[in-house]
Structure formats: structure tokens, C-alpha cells
């Protein structure tokens, strides 16, 4: 008889008594708040959605000057295209997120459940990557437009000597890198903490299949 069989005998005996809940104790439990990782993931995705919408809309509401300039820039087909793409992506994100949340089911087998959760996390990841890419595209793009449209800025930059040009380019690159690294750390932290156990268990299950 091996160890587990000894354990089994005890496990199925009535010796180990648990606190038995009555019907009236169980009923209120159904309506308590869940603290599952899926729920947390859902809140994070909603926060992501609004965060990026707010970030992209902020300049428009923040200053009249910016608004005028942005309205002017909509005469440019490139900006119109980018805006349309932006809206399409937001709607696609909402749809994909909705779809992947619907596919998370506790009645699936453990591996499939983990895969559905990881897939949802991927949808959020791609949305963030898209937004980051847009930030990186829009900074040089807006500088380029400033250069062409804003005479003051144009004259200033044109008067730069090569050394000053290098410094300016350096500052822009450093700022972008710092921004990127900070965001990366931030995301690593949230998803790292939230999904650490899931990732570990998923790896364990995958390892069995090799």
C-alpha cells in the first residue's frame, strides 16, 4: 500500500469533519463580491481603454491653441486616416475583449481555462502595444508638422548648428526611451503580480505535454 492509499483511507472516512454550512449560510455567499483574477483583468482592461482614449483626447480639451492646431491638421488626409484607424482599433478592441471574456468558462478543463485567460491578457497587450506605437509615430509626426506649419519653430530649428541638432534629437530619443521603459515596468508589475501563479501553473501543465 503506497502513501496515497493510506491517505485515501483517511480522506474518505468521516473522521475529518468540516464545518457544515446551512442553506441560510450559503445563500448570502452567492451574492458576495468575487475576487477572481478574471475580474481584476476585466477592470484593468476597462482602465486601459479609457486611459488611452483620455490620453489621445487630452490635448484637444486642454488648450484652445492645441485645439485650433489639431482642427487645422484634420485638413491633412494623413491625420484623418490616423483618426479613423484609431476609432476602428478601439471598436475592434472592445469587440475582441468582449469575445475573449465570454470564452472564459470555469467549466472548461483547467488548461483551456488558463489559455482563455492568457488570450484575454494578449488582447489587452496588443492594444497597449498599438497605443505605444501610435505615441512613437505621433511625436516625430507632430514635430514634423510643427516644423512646417509653425514659422517660429521652423526658424528656431533652422538656426540650430549641427551640435544643437544632435542635442535636440538626443533629448527627444531619451524622453521617448524613458517613457517607454517606465510603461514597460508598470505593465510588468501589474501583469507580473496578477498572473504569476497562472503562468507558473500553465507552464507546469504544458511541461507535461512535451
Amino acid at each position: 500500500m503506497d502513501e496515497l492509499d493510506i491517505l485515501k483511507k483517511d480522506w474518505n472516512s468521516d473522521k475529518s469533519s468540516y464545518r457544515e454550512y446551512t442553506d441560510s449560510e450559503i445563500a448570502p455567499m452567492l451574492h458576495k463580491k468575487s475576487s477572481s483574477i478574471v475580474k481584476t483583468l476585466f477592470y484593468i482592461s476597462i482602465a486601459e481603454l479609457f486611459l488611452w482614449i483620455i490620453i489621445s483626447a487630452l490635448p484637444y480639451f486642454l488648450s484652445d491653441d492645441m485645439r485650433d492646431r489639431m482642427e487645422k491638421s484634420y485638413e491633412n488626409p494623413l491625420f484623418i486616416t490616423l483618426t479613423v484607424i484609431g476609432f476602428v482599433v478601439i471598436f475592434a478592441f472592445i469587440y475582441l475583449l468582449f469575445k475573449s471574456y465570454r470564452s472564459i468558462s470555469t467549466t472548461d478543463n483547467t488548461k483551456k481555462l488558463m489559455e482563455s485567460i492568457l488570450k484575454t491578457r494578449k488582447v489587452i497587450k496588443y492594444y497597449v502595444i498599438y497605443n505605444l506605437a501610435m505615441v512613437f509615430v505621433s511625436i516625430p509626426l507632430s514635430l514634423y508638422f510643427e516644423f512646417n506649419e509653425n514659422i517660429e519653430f521652423h526658424d528656431q530649428v533652422a538656426a540650430f548648428n549641427p551640435k544643437q541638432m544632435v542635442v535636440m534629437a538626443g533629448i527627444i530619443v531619451v524622453m521617448m526611451v524613458v517613457f517607454f521603459v517606465l510603461l514597460l515596468l508598470f505593465y510588468r508589475l501589474i501583469y507580473g503580480v496578477l498572473l504569476k501563479r497562472l503562468n507558473r501553473n500553465y507552464k507546469e501543465l504544458k511541461r507535461l505535454e512535451v
Binding site: 475576487s35 477572481s36 483574477i37 478574471v38 481584476t40 470555469t106 467549466t107 472548461d108 478543463n109 483547467t110 481555462l113 488558463m114 485567460i117 496578477l194 497562472l198 501553473n201
Partner: peptide, 17 residues
């Protein structure tokens, strides 16, 4: 049988606290 699945899934995957 159905309880085994949901119970284990919750313990292994969903439970956070």
C-alpha cells in the same frame, strides 16, 4: 462531478486572495 471542475479551476487559476 461538475463541482470538481469548477472547484479546482477556482483554486488553481482564479483565486487571488
Amino acid at each position: 462531478t461538475w463541482m470538481y471542475r469548477v472547484g479546482l479551476n477556482t483554486a488553481i487559476t482564479l483565486y487571488r486572495k
